[in-house]
Structure formats: C-alpha cells, structure tokens
C-alpha cells in the first residue's frame, strides 16, 4: 500500500441502526486502496455483513459516507446507484444463484446493469459479453457446465459461478460475504485461492467477510477486526496475534489458532 494512493473505497463514520434499535455499525472509518484484498473478521453479529451491504446499499446506512472513487454513494438516486453498483461485484455465502436458470444465464445476469430490459428478456446479450462469459467460465474450469441448471451444481461449483457472475460486472471492488462458510475445508481453500488469484490478475480490491481466522491470515494481506460495530483491529495479517484476537472476539485460548496459521506459513516457506 503506497501512502499517497487515493483510496478506492473510503467509509467515513458509517453507522447503521436497524429499526429494532440494534446498532450494527457504530461510526466505522475504513479505507481500501485499489487492488487490495482485505479480510474482515469478527464474531457473529459484529456487523460484518451489514458493513458490506451498506457499501452497495442493499442495506441503507443510517449515517456516514461511502465513497467509491470519491463519489458518495449514500447520496445517489436510483439510476445513479444502479450504475455505481455495477462497479461492485458481490459474492454470497449461499451462492445466491438463481437456481432455476442455467449457469450461462446466471453468469450473464452479471451484465444486467449494462443491458436493456428487452435485450435481457430475450437473452440477447452483446457478443463480447458472451465471449467474456465463456472465457471466465473456462478460467474457473466450468466451461462444460454452461448449459446445466444452477441447482445441478455442487457447492464449490456454484460458488465459482457466483464469482464469475461478479466478475462479469467488470467491477473495481468485490464485496465477499462468507464465501467459504458453506463449503468443506478443501473447497474453501480452493475458492479463497481462486478469489485472490483473480483479484491479482485483474487488480481488483476486495472486502472478504470470513469466519475462519487461519484462512483469513493465509489469503489476505490486511486484516480488519470488527466487534460490536466498531473496528478494533486493522493491520497486516502477520501482526494479528493473541492480544488482537482477544480484542476482536473476547477472552479465549488463542495459542492453537495462531500456531496453526504460523505452521501453514512455515510449510509454505519450506
């Protein structure tokens, strides 16, 4: 991270209070520079999911600013918000594919923001969108699945389709909500590796909500810890120690968690 780089995304005093009175986010300040993959960790209910949903306004923030390339998204009208959303790809825990549509239709749905209603209704997408869809499906190893229905795929395959759909938007930022929580450990690592590789290839920034601390430490350079709607840790992955984890999650014996991450690191060095 170069210090003079202008942030791609800047949150200022971002606050969300739900109608029930729960304060999910309490004045969050956060900057994400272009091309940075950042892991957002924290206990359940800390506001991780609310935070990324406030960025693309699937959840309306109560106060504060969300600036993408300097533009404050919280002030945008409907049309401008739709155009801004095209630049932010979102990836979900339960994949959120339209189950009864084909893989190809799900992938092309990433282009809906760029396509007129009737063109989309008749599935008449521009040639270059279709070419790009096949190229990306091939990149994640699913070209042969293009015609299958989404509900015929395994969890790992569905998440790959979810990633391709987000990339079809040609985004500058990925908002990733628990991408591995529904996957087995091996598939989880494959998906995280794929995500990080794709971000590097395309110079994409990403905010990745993740439960698994070891996985976060392994795949993200920067880790931000959220607790009760506030940022309580923000630093390089190596600096996340037992004291930091206690600050994020509360008192617990963290020695094994840390050791696991360190062991993985040593393995890679060896």
């Amino acid at each position: 991270m170069t210090p003079d780089a202008r942030p791609l995304l800047a949150l200022r005093g971002l606050t969300k209070r739900y109608p029930t009175g729960d304060l999910a986010l309490d004045g969050v300040d956060l900057e994400v520079p272009p091309g940075q993959v950042m892991a957002l960790i924290g206990p359940s209910g800390a506001g991780k999911s609310t935070l990324i949903r406030c960025v693309n306004r699937l959840v309306e923030p109560s106060a504060g600013e969300v600036r993408l390339d300097g533009e404050d998204l919280t002030r945008l009208g409907r049309g401008a918000l739709r155009r801004a959303r095209r630049r932010m790809g979102m990836i979900f825990q339960e994949y959120a594919l339209v189950e009864r549509l084909s893989v190809m239709e799900n992938v092309l749905s990433g282009r809906l923001g760029y396509t007129g209603f009737w063109a989309a209704w008749f599935r008449r997408f521009p040639r270059r969108d279709v070419v790009e869809a096949f190229r990306l499906l091939d990149r994640v190893g699913l070209a042969h699945m293009a015609d299958k229905r989404a509900d015929a795929l395994s969890g790992g395959q569905r998440q790959r389709v979810g990633i391709v759909r987000a990339l079809m938007q040609d985004p500058a930022l990925l908002l990733v909500d628990e991408p591995t929580a529904s996957l087995d450990p091996k598939t989880s690592r494959q998906i995280m590796r794929l995500l990080v590789e794709l971000c590097e290839e395309r110079g994409l920034a990403a905010i990745v909500n993740i439960h698994d601390v070891a996985l976060a430490q392994e795949f993200a350079r920067r880790i931000v810890g959220l607790r009760q709607g506030r940022i309580v840790f923000d630093g390089p992955a190596e600096t996340l120690d037992a004291a930091a984890l206690t600050r994020i999650y509360g008192e617990e014996d963290w020695s094994r968690t840390i050791r696991r991450a360190e062991a993985a690191e040593e393995e890679e060095l060896a």
């Binding site: 959303r85 095209r86 979900f92 959120a96 594919l97 923001g113 209603f117 979810g162 759909r165």
Partner: peptide, 20 residues
C-alpha cells in the same frame, strides 16, 4: 438472497422481477 444478488449487479427493478 437470489433477488439480493441480482439487485447487487445493478439490475433494474423490472429485470430483478423477470430474472430473479
């Protein structure tokens, strides 16, 4: 969540209805 996912792509309300 399927509807949410399409909304997040920047799709219009009518597109979310017909696709999601």
């Amino acid at each position: 969540t399927q509807v949410e996912a399409l909304t997040a792509t920047g799709a219009s309300g009518a597109q979310v209805l017909t696709w999601g």
